[in-house]
């Protein structure tokens, strides 16, 4: 089952196109890493596909009515905003809003989704803590838990791993990979190519307004592409512990 279809998709900022001729189909069970240097248009692609900014061409998500879209896709922006000193439990409960009718209180089923999201992000004991008083990394995990609690077929995240310590980066990538393994679909923009190589099932590389490469990590992360798009040399090795990726120098 496909979760996102972009057809002849293009986004303009002012007179020039930031993205053009994007054709992309993402299906259930895929964990897509969206890669590209700064300014390649990763965030723009995701926001425009969601319908949060104007675009040309067709996106299966922005075509949905707003309420229906909220049940089809969860979106985790890069800016980690927590506007008020609310409790962690209240904040994660916001993820259930699209599933609640007007005036309806969270059901036991909603509670289960919230608890499961909290425990998957290692936040079991955090429910009553005030979200704004947590550290930056902890806040990031709370916001990821909010997106998980939304329990949508598609999860889109903008640099979810930024600002997490190594253990929680690995924990996050394992959680997202497990979500994909359960039949959901995950699209995440990433800067850490090593994490992307190890956990993503598919990598999409953006460069100069288009898709420079699209495929499994072993096919995408070639020396030629790394030099052309990222201007780096890297050591890529298949080991017993999975693929290893280590940038070595700038080209």
């Amino acid at each position: 089952m496909t979760q996102l279809v972009l057809t002849d998709f293009a986004v303009a900022r002012g007179p020039c196109d930031v993205l053009r001729d994007i054709n992309l189909t993402v299906g259930a069970g895929e964990f897509v890493g969206l890669l590209g240097p700064n300014g390649a248009g990763k965030t723009t692609l995701m926001r425009a596909a969601l319908g949060l900014m104007p675009h040309r061409g067709r996106s299966s998500l922005s075509a949905l009515p707003i309420k229906e879209r909220a049940r089809a896709v969860a979106w985790l922006p890069q800016a980690r905003e927590i506007g008020w000193p609310v409790s962690v439990a209240d904040l994660v409960t916001l993820g259930r809003l699209p599933h609640l009718a007007m005036g309806q209180r969270p059901s036991p089923q909603d509670r289960a989704a919230i608890d499961s999201a909290l425990s998957r992000m290692g936040l079991d004991a955090f429910g009553n803590r005030i979200a704004t008083q947590l550290s930056g990394g902890e806040q990031a995990r709370v916001l990821i838990a909010r997106a998980l609690a939304q329990d949508t077929p598609l999860l889109m995240a903008d640099e979810p791993a930024a600002g997490l310590d190594p253990a929680h980066q690995i924990g996050l990538m394992e959680t997202l990979a497990a979500e994909a393994g359960r039949g959901r679909c995950v699209i995440a923009s990433l800067h850490d190519l090593g994490l992307a190589a190890r956990y993503c099932t598919r990598l999409v590389v953006l460069a100069q307004g288009g898709i420079a490469a699209d495929g499994p990590p072993s096919k995408v992360l070639t020396p030629e592409l790394l030099a052309r798009v990222f201007h780096i040399r890297a050591l890529v090795q298949q080991t017993q512990d999975g693929p290893l990726f280590q940038p070595i120098g700038v080209v």
Binding site: R69, W75, I82, L94, R146
Partner: peptide
Amino acid sequence: AQGRAFDALTLGEDSAASLGV
């Protein structure tokens, strides 16, 4: 009647929009 929309805005405008506001 807009209480939920204001709740969702705690997460910022982008997240609120993605939550159906």
